[in-house]
C-alpha cells in the first residue's frame, strides 16, 4: 500500500521537527501551485477565445420570408424555396408546412419527385412523404421544418428557427 503523502513528508523533514514546513519547502510548493494556476488560466483563456465567438450563429433572430398568397399554392403541392433552404408543402387538407432541405439521415439535400409525390434523398435513397414523414430508411426522423405564419392571406416562413421532430403530428401544420 502507498503511504499517504503527508506522512512521507513528515518523515523526510523529521530533523527540523520544530518547523514542519521549512522555508525551502514552502517556496517550492508555492512555485508549483503558481505554475498550475498559470497553466489553468492560460488554458481557460485559450478555450474562452476559441469558443466565445462561435456561438453567435446558433440563435438567429426572427427572419421572416414571404412565400406568397395562400391561394397561389394548390392543395397537395410542393414549391421549392432554394434561397430559404426549404420546400413549402401544402397538404391535401390545406395545411402548410415548410420542410427543410436537409435529409435527417446525414444531411444531403432532398429533391421532390412529382410523379411519386415524395421527397427523395440522392445520397442513400431515403424517402419522405409530402408531410415529411419517413417512407424509406436509412433516415429515421421526419424532416425538420420551419414555423409558418399566415397573416392577411400571406404565407410567411420564419427561417431563423429550425424545428426538429421524430414523427409527423397534425399540430405541425398551419391553416389559413
Amino acid at each position: 500500500m502507498k503511504k499517504p503523502k503527508h506522512k512521507k513528508e513528515f518523515t523526510k523533514s523529521e530533523p527540523v521537527k520544530a518547523d514542519p514546513i521549512n522555508r525551502r519547502d514552502f517556496f517550492n510548493k508555492s512555485w508549483k501551485w503558481l505554475g498550475i494556476i498559470a497553466a489553468v488560466e492560460v488554458t481557460g483563456m485559450f478555450t474562452g477565445f476559441m469558443f466565445s465567438g462561435k456561438s453567435k450563429n446558433n440563435s438567429n433572430p426572427k427572419q421572416l420570408l414571404e412565400a406568397g398568397p395562400v391561394d397561389s399554392f394548390a392543395l397537395s403541392s410542393v414549391s421549392a424555396f432554394m434561397g430559404g433552404r426549404f420546400y413549402l408543402a401544402r397538404q391535401q387538407d390545406g395545411g402548410f408546412i415548410a420542410l427543410s432541405l436537409r435529409c435527417t439521415h446525414l444531411g444531403c439535400s432532398i429533391t421532390w419527385e412529382e410523379t411519386h409525390k415524395r421527397f427523395i434523398c440522392p445520397c442513400h435513397s431515403s424517402a419522405f412523404d409530402i408531410s415529411g414523414k419517413v417512407l424509406n430508411p436509412p433516415a429515421a426522423r421526419a424532416l425538420d421544418y420551419y414555423p409558418v405564419m399566415i397573416e392577411n392571406g400571406i404565407v410567411k416562413v420564419d427561417i431563423g428557427i429550425l424545428m426538429e421532430r421524430n414523427t409527423f403530428r397534425k399540430d405541425q401544420l398551419q391553416y389559413a
Partner: peptide, 23 residues
C-alpha cells in the same frame, strides 16, 4: 451548392471503410 447533393455522395476515400460499415 448547398441545395443540390451529388449522387452518390461519398465520404473521403480513407473513410470509405467506415462508410461501408454504415451501410
Amino acid at each position: 451548392n448547398p441545395s443540390y447533393s451529388l449522387n452518390p455522395t461519398k465520404a473521403p476515400w480513407y473513410f470509405a471503410g467506415v462508410q461501408e460499415l454504415l451501410m
